[in-house]
Write a protein that binds this DNA or RNA. Structure first.
Length: 437
RNA sequence: GCGAUCAUAGCUCAGUCGGUUAGAGCACCAGAUUGUGGAUCUGGGGGUCGCGGGUUCGAGUCCCGUUGGUCGCCCCA
């Protein structure tokens, strides 16, 4: 057993693992680019205060934080949102609108590990700044769906549950609740799916038992799963704000339907996301079977940029975590096998032949072909075995017979056929082979 | 922070009632094999049985502790 172990909850990426992670990152990045989002990155280490300001003192227990040699309190970033708010806030007036940004980065949280959760993980983050209307959510939810579909997942595999904190607040106000009670009810709603009636206990402790009729209304609102029922429910209440808000819902759902994405999106007011900073639409992506933790989550946070010292700037965004996502891909058999094969494997007779081969190897590699060869002299039989095992399509044979004739033998390892080509034409022959000529 | 469970080779695991020098398959390396294929055969390297203590003539095996993995609770930005 090695003396030194990986720190608890951290991950190592051996080449097979790294290939899988690269595959995921590559497709996320490509998808974000097709949606016109620009990639950014920022420091892994940030002032601890940035997270205190966003989430409060209690957050510190969940952070990898310490005091640096300059006496600064710092923390490894546990999320991207505060950072991107700072970046955008600092240059808000100079950035061309709409501001559509994404990042793929690693984060650290000091937590106990579970399935789909570790102390270090990666997230794809996408955010839109400066757009107050549902047009931002349209882009974000479409991007979220495509980021999952890009791997072959379908509406059989996942869904996006869409809810709205504004709607909840307007509705609860219409029912006559004050701000403190509304906050407590939202906490209960957030936990209701998991805990059932128990979820209302903290509310009862602060404000006394919730009136029976009121509770019934809240529970039926929570259970709403369609726009039609939603419209029906709020029809007779507080016409102004609720009505206008429903207009935003229609615009959002209409746009997603026009994109052909309606089958992925479900109205589900049971989702409110506990985070206090969300201000409007909120959404979460889950696997259909409900076996895994959330694949992605996001929503609108119109007050956060200003709260962190920037200008007032509306914003919305979401993040996809890599751990649960990779679990889902593997469960569905959608994680490809990544064996990295060279295009060309060189079979080399001896020292003199090796020097000749080196010239071609260098030229082929410079031309973009993946070329490998045995580092040390080996029997021909072994080299052919190695060539076959490597997965290369072509073998180039540099033997004494060939060199005497000024040729190289080119063997098609798939067809098991070979031909001799003059040494000067090796590069052209390989190029033509791989260009399909 | 709490609970359950597990820990023997790089991986998957066996290891009898506590008894001699801890095994197998896969993987890796080499040979058979000095010019043609993923095979086969032979051999090899690789272990502080997670770590520490205890019981015992004797511990991979039993007991206590500890570290770590996995899963769940709290939390989940």
């Amino acid at each position: 057993m090695a003396t030194f172990q990986t720190l608890p909850g951290f991950r190592e990426f051996y080449p097979e693992d790294f290939a899988r992670r690269n595959h995921i990152f590559r497709r996320w990045r490509h998808t974000a680019n097709t949606f016109g989002f620009s990639e950014y990155d920022a420091p892994v280490l940030e002032p601890l205060e940035l997270y205190r300001a966003k989430s409060g003192e209690e957050i510190e227990a969940q952070l990898f934080s310490f005091t640096d040699k300059g006496g600064r309190e710092v923390a490894l970033r546990p999320e991207m949102t505060p950072t991107v708010c700072r970046l955008v806030g600092a240059r808000a007036s100079a950035l061309k609108r709409p501001i559509k940004w994404f990042s793929i980065a690693e984060f650290y949280r000091y937590e106990r590990m579970q399935k789909g959760r570790g102390r270090c993980f990666s997230q794809f983050n996408a955010d839109i700044f400066g757009e107050p209307g549902p047009e931002a959510e349209i882009e974000l939810i479409a991007l979220l769906v495509q980021c999952l579909c890009a791997f072959g997942l379908t509406e059989q595999d996942f869904h996006v549950r869409l809810s709205d904190r504004d709607l909840w607040i307007f509705y609860l106000e219409a029912l006559g609740l004050d701000e403190a009670r509304i906050r407590a009810v939202l906490v209960a709603v957030d936990k209701y799916e998991k805990m059932g009636d128990e979820a209302f206990k903290p509310y009862a402790e602060s404000f006394g038992p919730l009136d029976g009729g009121l509770k019934a209304k809240i529970l039926s609102f929570l259970a709403i799963k369609s726009l039609a029922v939603l419209e029906q429910t709020v029809a007779n209440l507080d016409g102004g704000r609720l009505g206008a808000r429903l207009g935003d819902w229609k615009k959002l759902l209409g746009a997603l339907a026009a994109m052909g994405l309606a089958r992925f999106v479900e109205v589900d007011l049971g989702v409110v996301r506990g985070l206090a900073y969300y201000t409007g639409f909120v959404f979460e992506a889950y696997d259909r079977k409900g076996e895994l933790r959330a694949l992605a989550g996001g929503g609108r946070y119109d007050d956060l940029v200003e709260k962190l010292g920037g200008p007032a700037l509306p914003a919305a965004g979401f993040a996809i975590g890599d751990m649960t996502f990779a679990l889902l891909l593997e469960q569905r058999g959608l994680m490809p096998d990544f064996t990295q094969a060279p295009d060309v494997y060189c079979v080399i007779g001896g020292e003199a032949e090796r020097l000749a081969a080196f010239g071609d190897i260098q030229a082929l590699r410079a031309a973009g072909h993946r070329v490998d060869y045995p580092l040390k002299d080996m029997a021909f039989g072994k080299q052919f075995k190695a060539a076959a095992e490597s997965g290369a399509k072509l073998a180039l044979i540099y033997g004494s017979d060939e060199l005497a004739k000024g040729v190289v033998k080119v063997r098609d390892l798939t067809q098991r056929s070979e031909l001799e080509v003059p040494r000067a034409q090796v590069l052209a022959t390989v190029r033509d082979f791989f260009s399909g000529a």
